[in-house]
Design a protein around this nucleic acid. Structure first.
Length: 597
RNA sequence: GGUUGCAUAGCUCAAUUGGAUAGAGCAUCUGACUACGAAUCAGAAGGUUUGGGGUUCGACUCCCUAUGCGACCA
């Protein structure tokens, strides 16, 4: 594709030289795919050339088009609409392009001028409650971005920074001590993360009651929040934890162990993985060292009460607390430690943080603070800031019980996929296990595509009914195209249609064939663009467009029913390449493809 | 109060980064299975791109302004 575009650009430069005696830099040639409603495959926008050439845009288009048609074999014809020169490409050129594509093995790195060593940190859950819908967008984004960068040939480490310490964990622990009665995941028949989450909710419930009680006694809300016995206990426990109190540590290990079991089950189920786990409990001390370093360098300062701050007003930010007066750390303390640890471990040239956009300010502060410390990796930090997921009823709030649980949601989409599959009745002969796999593949395909097709930067609305849809602009729509091609491949193989052949005697191409080839050739450019923008949505859209182009091709031209053997073979090969491209694209999104559905 | 993001068809999202007549899906209406798989395809209808101003040959895109919604920082 790049090559074809390059050929056209070079030819256009030659044309400008020959017809107008003008030297034009390749960069000033605006060449783009032609819009569907017009004839042709590539379009040159001629408006920008009018000044230099001293001619009207249409005149320029006509002259350049005429020259290309006469002198450039790749150009079969042209038409000019206003300031747009539409170039029609010769069939031989498409065939050449397809032959090259078909020979390219799957997994060939996509050319991309970007980072070579990348750490993608994503998921990063708190260990006091199970994963929810918001985490799913995070996990799918992080996994996909990592896969996209890998496809450009970069070495990528997927990292998960587990937020395993802090006041919120203590809340679950306090509630368990009080109300747990020795319950375990086994005794309750509950996943460990759900069990811990249960006690977190219990804490919040009783804590609210205590506040109400205090308020009734005439204490202001603000004071009540601080003086409620449960909160005091939780804070005391946090200090005991930092002091290494044996009993507290034992409980902490026990409950976190349950939660990790639960998380690992969920990760395996949704098909995301990690190369490296970091734990806040293992990085906050290093963070404290960095704070000390900053004090010594004089870039941080201490307030009268002993708390440590950094002044970022010159950077357009505020003063920021780095260490509390009592010496306990805050979020950013451990972030300083983790950033350093990751750099020591992997020496990245890009460190991507997949974190919701509510943390935009925090991430700016982190980067500015690392710069103050003079850290070489400060500039490599990149916040992949994604929008929150809203529900039709409004924002998700765990305290109000309006969260959508990840495990339950996955189950629901699988059930929807099962219902639809049974209704279609095309899966005769599949075993129970194969069917379960299929429902999983389809359900997750629907969910992942639904969450990834939206531009990450944008806040999105989660509509439960739409997330399990299997028709139209959905994952299963694309998976269906793949499954249909799989059938063709099986039948072709059974009837002995060769996978490879010489297509030089093919004759003319059907427009749907040319369009499909152009579409397939765009894969590398799409992946590069997705890597640049860190946007799986670019890939999702592409996969959908490929599936649509194929479906059009499928209805318009016969494949296995084609009598001409060369044509038949070519169309089978074109179908196969389409299937491979779909598989690769969806693979970058973490979506599997079924051979049958 | 300060900083910042967003606003496109009834709904959910696109728009090749300043290019053509702003495109898809859902929902609505119409047509195509005795057919290589209809989870599909073909078509109809649906828009003052929140309002107003500006820059440009050309604006959903850039600038100013008003309104609405959100996030963050005291």
């Amino acid at each position: 594709m790049q090559q074809l575009e390059q050929t056209l650009k070079t030819a256009l430069q030659a044309a400008a030289q020959a017809v107008f005696n003008q030297d034009i830099p390749a960069a000033s040639l605006v060449l783009q795919p032609t819009r569907k409603d017009f004839a042709g495959s590539f379009t040159l926008v001629t408006f920008p050339l009018t000044k230099a050439f001293g001619k009207g845009p249409e005149q320029i288009g006509q002259a350049l088009g005429e020259w290309l048609k006469a002198n450039e074999p790749a150009v079969r014809g042209y038409n000019v609409v206003k300031g747009f020169l539409n170039l029609e490409i010769a069939d031989a050129e498409w065939l050449k392009l397809f032959t090259e594509l078909a020979q390219q093995p799957a997994g060939t790195p996509v050319p991309f001028d970007g980072p070579k060593k990348v750490v993608v940190e994503y998921s990063s859950p708190n260990t006091n409650k199970p994963l929810h819908l918001g985490h799913l967008r995070n996990n799918f984004l992080g996994y996909s971005v990592a896969e996209i960068l890998k496809a450009t040939g970069a070495t990528v480490t997927k990292a998960n920074l587990v937020n395993d310490r802090g006041i919120h964990i203590c809340k679950s622990m306090i509630a368990y001590q009080r109300f747990g009665e020795g319950a375990t995941p086994e005794s309750m028949g509950l996943k460990g993360d759900h069990l811990a989450g249960k006690y977190y909710v219990l804490f919040e419930k009783h804590y609210r009651e205590e506040i109400k009680q205090l308020e009734a006694e005439g204490v202001t809300n603000e004071v009540a929040k601080k003086q409620a016995p449960l909160m005091l206990e939780a804070q005391q426990m946090l200090q005991q934890w930092e002091a290494g109190d044996e009993e507290v540590m034992a409980l902490w290990h026990r409950m976190n162990g349950w939660v990790y079991d639960g998380f690992n089950a969920t990760y395996a189920n949704i098909g995301v993985d990690f190369d490296k786990f970091y734990y806040e409990s293992g990085t906050y001390l290093l963070g404290k060292e960095r704070v000390e370093e900053g004090l010594q360098k004089g870039v941080f300062f201490k307030k009268e009460n002993g708390s440590v701050w950094v002044d970022l007003q010159a950077e357009g930010l505020d003063e920021k607390l780095l260490l509390r007066a009592d010496g306990t750390s805050v979020y950013i303390t451990q972030d300083l430690g983790t950033a350093e640890l990751k750099y020591q471990d992997f020496g990245y040239d890009s460190s991507i943080y997949v974190i919701a956009d509510e943390q935009n300010y925090h991430m700016q502060v982190l980067q500015a603070t690392l710069k103050k410390l003079g850290k070489p990796y400060a500039d490599a930090i990149h916040h992949l800031s994604y929008g929150m997921v809203d529900l039709p009823s409004g924002k998700m709030k765990s305290r109000e019980g309006t969260v959508v649980d990840a495990d339950e949601l996955v189950k629901e989409v699988e059930e929807a996929a099962e219902a639809a599959t049974l209704e279609k009745g095309k899966t005769e002969g599949l075993s129970e296990e194969e069917l379960a796999d299929l429902y999983h593949t389809l359900g997750l395909g629907a969910l992942k595509y639904y969450l990834l097709k939206v531009d990450p930067k944008k806040r999105m609305l989660f509509n439960p009914a739409e997330s399990v849809r299997l028709e139209g602009d959905t994952g299963p729509f694309i998976q269906y195209s793949y499954a249909r091609i799989s059938k063709i491949r099986r039948d072709a193989e059974a009837t002995g249609v060769a996978a490879e052949a010489d297509f030089s005697q093919l004759g003319s191409l059907h427009p749907a064939e040319a369009e499909l080839i152009q579409q397939l050739a765009g894969y590398a450019g799409v992946v590069a663009e997705a890597a640049r923008a860190l946007s799986p949505a670019v890939v999702a859209q592409y996969a959908y467009e490929v599936a649509k182009s194929y479906n059009r091709f499928y209805t318009e031209v016969p494949i296995l029913k084609e009598a001409d053997l060369v044509k038949k073979t070519f169309r089978v090969a074109l179908s196969a390449k389409t299937a491979d491209t779909i598989k690769a694209s969806l693979g970058l999104l973490g979506i599997d493809v079924p051979e049958r559905m």
